[in-house]
Design a protein around this nucleic acid. Structure first.
Lengths: 332, 332
DNA sequence: CTGAAAGCGCTTACAG
DNA sequence: CTGAAAGCGCTTACAG
């Protein structure tokens, strides 16, 4: 491997000078700089990032901790993070934790020591003391998609508002018996979506029927099963609001297999607006969450924190909006 | 930050001994070891990975280079890679390149120098000299999903065979005019799928109609558009074989909007068997590719290469199989 | 503007 | 089995 010493020798200067010429942080004679650059070019010298990191105490690397990249919103989030990272000379370490605090702690312990300049967490569950501890130790941390409280920087949407507006939209269309298929209530985002749904019903004087609310549904298959079970139990809502698009897809499958027409028999609305939703049959009404954008915002914020700018925590709330499609269309 | 010196001081031994006690590679007195471990515990010491890496010339980190994590097969691939990586003490750097050779080279240059012990590439296009060069320099490299030739280790499926069998299945069902929506022919996997399709037609004495073959379709929206255009052009196949599930989804949208019934008017088959395909309306017949499994295999192989075991290149070919669903069902 | 020296935190031959 | 020393490849005060 070619080192700074090799460059120095070829350029006829000291390693210190090579380092300075390359960093640009310190004045170097024009002629000297030129010789150095030529030597760098000739030898195809790339500085050893480990040595640099060891000396400087930073690595230009961040840890992106998320539950599971297979959950379809996370690729978008991850891509946003990575694009901004790359543009700013950062590198991203991908950490899937399956919501396991142990795996999360493993990663934190592994990456904390000089490995990583900061963390983005999209994993915050209720018991997030380890994340708060990390922040207290002075490690730059940004939360993404999932919030804890307002003591840590976060990039999120207003889940309450989005679900509230979604529910109001269904009510405006004339749907009155609206089922709600929710995710894990340990996650504040799902608690908030449920609260938004309930609030919209209340405001429109529609009684809340607990039999219409199913919690803790994560995978498509579970959504398929709970939807089937709901209908088998003799409960026939006129609309279903699924708290994520994959849950809506599962519900769609169940309705398909029971020959229940969407939207004529039961309308369906999702949450996420995944790419596929537009091409479903019927096309799925959903609430669009700017995942990619949020990923970029989180990374930009993390860079600010790493650079010590504006360290007072702030929560950046993005807008979600309803994308109206055929799965909620009212027959005229 | 607590260093090996702090531990040494507390345990009353030299840093060398702490290092030895921790590595386990060298005999250390039982009593001494115990003292060291207690000090490590008490101080919550974690070795600095940069210093270790600088000294040892390895980092237990690998680069996973893929076109775009938003392409739905890659989250599964990435998860497979990461799971095996974590189980073996490795860490994964995520690199999205959008098929750009420049970005790929950027990443290679950045990660090559001591940063990373090896690479997994799922990006190989025709002009992959930079990957071959990397391998020639002695850097451990495994190709995933996309192959170049047999000079580099690879984990793939037999795309020719899979597409051949898929096409035969459609022919057996009685479909005779089968359109083929293909991806970028720069990628060998798409060339092979097309060849498999053609070969099946030939063997069954069905003439190849170039008007039924659309190349270079990547996104769902493009698939939607080319399918619409095909039908608008007055061409009415009785089946469509899409070379990936997202392309099938786009086609499904187009058929939906033209009120063409699947499978009665036109049957549809995809390739990938994404989670969502089962829940489409109608459920989508597809060819299942074991993406997660392939990711794990690639990482296991890369670890072998890093450890210098069995360095003779080998190509590991996984089985793909048809998942039969309603989108190709023949009316009885 | 430039060089020699120290040091980042480890590991590992070298002695003993 | 254990310690002192050297060195991995950089950067940056310290002198000049």
């Amino acid at each position: 491997m070619v080192t700074i010493k090799d460059v120095a020798k070829l350029a006829g200067v000291s390693p210190s000078t090579v380092s300075r010429a390359l960093s640009g942080k310190v004045p170097v004679d024009g002629e000297t700089k030129k010789k150095v650059m030529e030597a760098v070019e000739a030898l195809n010298y790339k500085p050893n990032v480990l040595a640099k990191g060891l000396k400087e105490g930073r690595t230009n690397t961040i840890g992106l901790v998320l539950p599971n990249i297979q959950n379809p919103i996370f690729p978008y989030v991850a891509r946003g993070v990575e694009d901004v990272a790359r543009q700013n000379g950062y590198t991203v370490i991908l950490c899937n934790t399956d919501e396991s605090k142990d795996i999360e702690l493993d990663y934190i312990n592994k990456l904390k020591n000089r490995w990583v300049d900061g963390f983005i967490f999209a994993t915050a569950v209720r018991d997030a003391t380890h994340i708060l501890d990390l922040k207290d130790e002075g490690v730059p941390v940004v939360l993404l998609v999932r919030n804890i409280d307002n003591k840590v920087d976060a990039v999120i949407i207003d889940n309450f508002k989005a679900a509230y507006e979604g529910t109001c939209y269904l009510i405006e269309l004339g749907y009155k018996s609206i089922a709600f298929i929710n995710g894990n209530p340990e996650l504040s985002l799902y608690r908030e979506r449920l609260a938004g749904y309930k609030s919209a019903l209340k405001e429109n004087n529609i009684p809340i029927d607990d039999r219409l609310i199913v919690q803790n549904v994560e995978k498509m298959e579970e959504a398929y099963n709970v939807t089937s079970a709901l209908l088998d139990g003799g409960i026939m809502p006129d609309a279903i609001f699924a708290a994520s698009d994959p849950k809506a897809y599962g519900a769609m499958g169940a309705l398909r297999d029971k020959n229940i027409n969407i939207p004529n028999d039961i309308a369906l609305m999702g949450f996420d607006d995944l790419d596929t939703s537009k091409y479903m049959n019927p096309s799925l009404t959903s609430i669009s969450q700017p995942c990619y954008k949020m990923g970029t915002a989180a990374m930009l914020r993390l860079i600010e924190l790493i650079e010590g700018k504006d360290v007072k925590p702030k929560v950046d709330t993005f807008d979600a909006h309803i994308v109206k499609r055929d799965s909620t269309k009212r027959n005229e």
